[in-house]
């Protein structure tokens, strides 16, 4: 007996997906071809605009000579440490602000003010305080990534279903049990959203911070290549950043789907 099974994706939906992929892909392809033609025809100074073929070649070169791996490794470490710290610190802060009214009243305005401050504009200060090394970048990532987490988890605590709390209370559940069995599961979709936003902000933070000052990292590599007119390498670096960003987002989206199985299809999309 197959009652109430979730309907498998119909063929129509699959065909629609293929068509939309083909449409989206062809625009990107056309863009790359146009770019290449612009370069080969020398309408614009080739030095300024590079070309897809040259970006690929530059990419291969920096992979082969180890430049990319070195800089990527540095940036990855800065990102991972800053992002990790943001999660470890931001998650409890968001929960506490959402759970305790008094905490919200006390720290809410301060956090709102911090959030409104453009973090990257503080970079000169962080360089003075923490030097040109990794620490100043880690701080920037931390400060960029932490606010989306705090805000999302705080909001999550406000969406707790009062009816469920009544159920738990009727079984004599303690406040801690209510927190563990209701507040935490409620927070999961918000945590995932927060993680995705934080990843984007953090990635931006690490690249901009490296462009700003320093001697290592993908941002530095892009900045250095730019100031020495190696446009191919600039594009190669930007491509690496973009691919990293997309990968992170896809991974977090998958994670969200895995933990969001209990939500109806309508709510996931």
């Amino acid at each position: 007996m197959r009652l109430l099974t979730v309907l498998p994706k119909s063929r129509v939906a699959q065909r629609e997906k293929i068509i939309s992929l083909a449409l989206g892909g062809s625009v990107i392809l056309l863009f790359l071809i146009g770019w290449e033609i612009l370069f080969q025809s020398k309408i614009v100074n080739p030095l300024f605009i590079s070309a897809p073929s040259r970006v690929v070649l530059a990419g291969i070169t920096i992979i082969k000579d180890g430049t990319l791996l070195h800089h990527l490794g540095i940036s990855a470490r800065e990102f991972a440490l800053g992002y990790g710290a943001a999660v470890v610190v931001g998650f409890p802060i968001g929960i506490i602000l959402g759970w305790f009214k008094l905490a919200r009243a006390t720290f809410g305005p301060f956090i709102a003010a911090m959030q409104a401050t453009p973090r990257i504009a503080l970079m000169p200060l962080f360089i003075i305080w923490f030097g040109l090394g990794m620490t100043s970048k880690i701080i920037i990532v931390l400060l960029s990534a932490i606010f989306p987490l705090i805000v999302n988890l705080q909001v999550a605590m406000g969406t707790i279903d009062a009816d469920l709390v009544q159920v738990a209370r009727s079984y004599g559940a303690t406040r801690w049990q209510i927190f563990r069995t209701i507040a935490l599961p409620t927070s999961v979709p918000f945590l995932i959203t927060g993680l995705r936003l934080a990843a984007g902000r953090g990635l931006l933070g690490v690249i901009v911070a490296e462009v700003f000052g320093g001697a290592e990292g993908i941002g530095y590599m892009i900045q250095y290549a730019g100031s020495t007119f190696q446009t191919d390498k600039v594009f190669a670096g930007v491509l690496v950043v973009a691919v990293t960003g997309i990968t992170l987002d896809v991974v977090l989206d998958r994670l969200g789907r895995h933990f969001g199985k209990w939500r109806s299809e309508a709510a996931v999309h």
Binding site: D161, D163, L164, Q166, V167, S170, T181, I182, P185, V188, W262, R263
Partner: peptide, 13 residues
């Protein structure tokens, strides 16, 4: 005591 509520109040997860 056990309680049954009008809105079911099942844990969605």
């Amino acid at each position: 005591t056990g309680y049954v509520f009008q809105q079911y109040a099942l844990f969605p997860w």
